[in-house]
Design a protein around this nucleic acid. Structure first.
Lengths: 140, 140
DNA sequence: GTCACTGCAAACGCTTTGCAATCGT
DNA sequence: ACGATTGCAAAGCGTTTGCAGTGAC
């Protein structure tokens, strides 16, 4: 995603405007698809547009979430801060309790589990957040 | 758990003190094992001890987390607030995106997935947070 | 008697919001 | 030109902390 074309359409269709700030933030997110937090995104964006504000970062992330382009996660050990990443294939995260490192992974079994539960409990499951905590190979 | 006996020992062994406030908070958590947030726990505790402070609730929850008696979760749609529940058998949560209802469930498949990943990625998995979002039977 | 713990109020960190100016359409 | 979006600064909200007093051991 994040092609300017596709974006233009999505934005236009929903009565939103594609400003230079939004374009820039999409660029940043595309280049470093790295579950960044708002502060980090702000820092990267500021390098190219020193006038951009943190408020705009938050407001844009909100819009991008609404439009489905980014997803919000909570990855830090304290659960105090939100992280954002472009919506891609389903994947999950592991956080090392010692060094704080975040490892991404995919898992067919998790999708199976989700399907099984949807059936069993009659839920319409839109999204599965799976997050493992523990010790990474270096810290265990 | 949360038997006063066992608690007394855990607290004593770690050089902590079992105060009336801590006993009260344990009671509240035991009676309503309902993934409450700090404010709700505070409200319930205040009914029996009007002098208890919110700071003590937070500090006690921190201690109980360290000791392993409670676990912290993030269950609200905004991810802004922490919820606490006594540590029992592994179970997970589903949040309805429309009505906000939280449904608990267990799943052997999720435990399998966690084991598989631990092996595959050489992780020491201490804890799996699994959280589904979607629409409950009433809202779908 | 010690020192962990408490209540209070102030501070914290991340996120949101009101407002006047700006810029996409 | 209209109104969605911006930057700024101030406010919001859940959580944490400094401090003097208290109570568990």
């Amino acid at each position: 995603m994040a092609h300017t074309e596709a974006m233009t359409q999505i934005f236009h269709a929903t009565g939103r405007r594609l400003t230079s700030q939004r374009r820039l933030l999409l660029e940043v997110l595309t280049e470093r698809d790295d579950h960044l937090d708002a502060e980090a995104i702000y820092a990267l964006a500021k390098k190219r547009d020193p006038n951009i504000s943190l408020a705009t970062v938050y407001r844009t992330l909100k819009v991008l979430k609404e439009v489905g382009v980014v997803q919000e996660r909570i990855l830090d050990r304290e659960g105090q801060r939100h992280h954002y990443e472009l919506t891609t294939e389903a994947h999950y995260h592991f956080t090392c309790l010692k060094c704080g490192r975040v490892i991404e992974f995919e898992s067919a079994l998790i999708e199976q589990a989700s399907d099984e539960l949807a059936k069993r409990l009659q839920l319409d499951v839109v999204h599965a957040r799976v997050h493992l905590d523990g010790y990474c190979p270096d810290c265990r």
